[in-house]
């Protein structure tokens, strides 16, 4: 057997099925769970994604030990780039302690034993579902998005063979028609999350179901942005400092959500707010969705 073939294998012992975190990565699995051949395949796909900003690279997504639709794409991307020196942050809906974020963080602690953090600026890799951190990211960071449906045209045309042609020909009229129909019906564009963007003036791309509030943060972001869709088997990327425009019309420019309220915990007036129902009498309050940012803001205020 060649060295390459040996490297492709990995040691798996079924005897240990308990999931207790311990010092060092779990010896029953390869570092970061994926076998080396799979990592190489994903690594090559990521490089092509970076070279062709916004283009969805097909990849042979693996069956992961968590369900499709629960972050398997993001997990495979993170597993393919992460090393022992990385510091990992995992968020879901902006928060570090959401159950699925906890579960994914535990998975990486178990399989890599890397340091984790909730502090945005301390992380070298941030895996996210549905939010971009409020704090600006730097060139030394990588933001990994979990993506359910990577194809921005999917709801207009369900067939992959058709949408692929539309991307190839740059035929994006259908998307503009859809947005314009919103304007005709409602007087404004009625898309509030997964709001389509154009990357580097070429591909129309789905930013994943982040609120459109977060779209401006993608534009010329210093951090590398990687997107993984496991079930749909696609990887795409936005290199640092790349132009990312939210689609709009001259007479109906893109605008983000605004709240009349401020965060009731930290007082921030410029963040994305979650609505919390406090009783069954219509009582509600608004708090930051980015839990780390909220804590920092609160600490600074005290």
């Amino acid at each position: 057997m060649t060295q390459a073939a040996q490297n492709a294998g990995m040691q798996v012992d079924q005897s240990d099925v308990t999931g207790e975190a311990k010092a060092g990565p779990d010896p029953h699995y390869n570092f970061a769970y994926l076998d080396e051949q799979t990592k190489r395949m994903i690594r090559r796909a990521i490089l092509k994604g970076v070279a062709i900003p916004g283009y969805q690279v097909p990849f042979a997504s693996r069956e992961m030990p968590m369900p499709y639709g629960w972050g398997t794409g993001g997990v495979q991307v993170t597993a393919s780039i992460i090393g022992p020196d990385d510091v990992l942050k995992v968020i879901d809906q902006g928060a570090d302690d959401t159950t699925n974020a906890v579960s994914i963080r535990q998975f990486f602690v178990r399989t890599t034993d890397v340091e984790t953090t909730t502090h945005t600026e301390e992380a070298s890799i941030i895996q996210t579902r549905h939010r971009i951190p409020e704090q600006n990211l730097s060139e030394d960071q990588i933001l990994v998005y979990q993506v359910p449906i990577p194809e921005p045209l999917r709801f207009l045309e369900p067939r992959e063979s058709e949408t692929r042609k539309m991307h190839a020909l740059g035929e994006y009229g259908l998307m503009h028609v859809k947005l314009y129909e919103d304007i005709a019906t409602h007087g404004h564009i009625a898309t509030t999350y997964a709001y389509p963007v154009k990357v580097n003036g070429h591909y129309i791309m789905d930013p994943s179901p982040t609120p459109k509030f977060d779209n401006p943060k993608m534009h010329r972001m210093p951090a590398l942005q990687l997107f993984g869709a496991g079930r749909e088997k696609r990887i795409y990327a936005i290199p640092p400092h790349t132009a990312v425009y939210s689609l709009d019309f001259e007479d109906h420019p893109f605008e983000v959500q605004q709240w009349e309220q401020s965060c009731e915990i930290c007082g921030a007036g410029d963040t994305f707010l979650d609505e919390v129902v406090t009783d069954d009498q219509g009582g509600r309050m608004f708090v930051c969705s980015d839990s780390d940012h909220c804590n920092r803001h609160q600490e600074a205020a005290e």
């Binding site: 970076v50 780039i81 090393g83």
Partner: peptide, 14 residues
């Protein structure tokens, strides 16, 4: 290979 990949990724991204 992970360390080298990050070099390659940084290079391709910048």
């Amino acid at each position: 290979s992970q360390a080298m990949y990050r070099n390659l990724l940084s290079a391709m991204a910048q």
